[in-house]
Nucleic acid binder design. Structure first.
Length: 277
DNA sequence: AATCGCGCCTGACGGC
DNA sequence: TGCCGTCAGGCGCGAT
């Protein structure tokens, strides 16, 4: 599922190809994504040039001459460059035809993704304006997390996955970062000391950078814009490893449900501490 | 104000 | 073989 490293990988793969190109045509096959694709979008996009390709959290931003196309991949979305348009697949919902010739196909079986348009500052778009900071930004500090967590009784894993606190962290990287930080996912966020937040933040950055180096995590169907998978899946320590032995201590990896999401952890390496230390 | 759980979707899989 | 239930889950939104 595309989290920050996957979306950033798509962005990096795509950027040298799409910037400076012009949108000749957009064909919508299935407009019903998480939100309906605006009916006039094809008309609006025609003949616009792509000036830059950016990322904010898990959103991909196509900065165009007269506005910005916002793209989200939900759980199962992908965007691929293809040579020709002859072999359209089931769940290919939108096709972008660029000039000089380049075809992009947006594919999303579960349709939890989104394709939207704004002509204002995209940072002020309702979906972006309340997002928390980028964890990979140079000014992202443990002290920020510590401050925001002061009154949060919510489990640290839910806290890290809250895009209004910090963007881009989904289930996989939240589980992995907490494992490396030796913090139990149920620990109330406000219980962590500044030192512990430093540990968590460093673990998070290490996991995100490693995943980026590996081109993201492919569990089932994630591919970048060139159709290539990511190789971080082989380096997962807890995610998807229920009942298997911990690679550190050989205890069985356990699971629990947090906000309807399966949470993987090692009960031995990540002891639950309910008192502030 | 913070937190919880629903609903949107399809595909894979297990049981019968 | 087919049908049904369950699970996977990002995230806005309404309810508490």
């Amino acid at each position: 599922m595309p989290e920050l490293p996957e979306v950033e990988t798509i962005r990096r793969t795509l950027e040298p190809f799409v910037v400076q190109r012009t949108i000749q045509k957009m064909v919508v096959i299935q407009p019903k994504l998480r939100w309906k694709i605006p009916e006039n979008l094809a008309e609006l996009l025609k003949h616009q040039s792509i000036i830059a390709l950016q990322r904010r959290g898990k959103y991909l931003l196509f900065r165009c001459t007269q506005g910005t196309l916002l793209m989200h991949f939900g759980m199962s979305g992908s965007l691929r460059m293809v040579g020709d348009d002859t072999e359209r697949l089931k769940h290919d919902h939108v096709i972008f035809y660029l000039e000089p010739k380049l075809i992009l196909r947006y594919h999303d079986p579960r349709r939890f993704g989104a394709i939207l348009w704004t002509e204002d500052d995209p940072e002020q778009h309702p979906l972006l304006k309340n997002l928390g900071p980028e964890p990979l930004a140079p000014d992202f500090h443990a002290s920020y997390l510590y401050q925001r967590a002061q009154h949060a009784r919510t489990p640290i894993k839910s806290f890290l996955m809250n895009a209004h606190i910090v963007t881009g962290i989904g289930n996989i990287y939240a589980c992995e970062a907490l494992f490396h930080a030796h913090v139990h996912p149920m620990t109330p966020a406000r219980n962590l000391s500044l030192d512990q937040w430093t540990t968590v933040k460093n673990a998070l950055l290490r996991v995100l950078h490693q995943a980026l180096d590996d081109g993201g995590t492919t569990l089932k169907d994630y591919v970048n814009a060139q159709g290539e998978p990511g190789y971080f899946a082989t380096k997962l320590w807890v995610y998807g490893r229920a009942h298997q032995v911990c690679r550190t201590c050989s205890a069985p990896i356990e699971t629990l449900k947090l906000n309807q999401r399966t949470t993987f952890y090692c009960g031995h390496c990540q002891p639950l501490r309910l008192t502030t230390s």
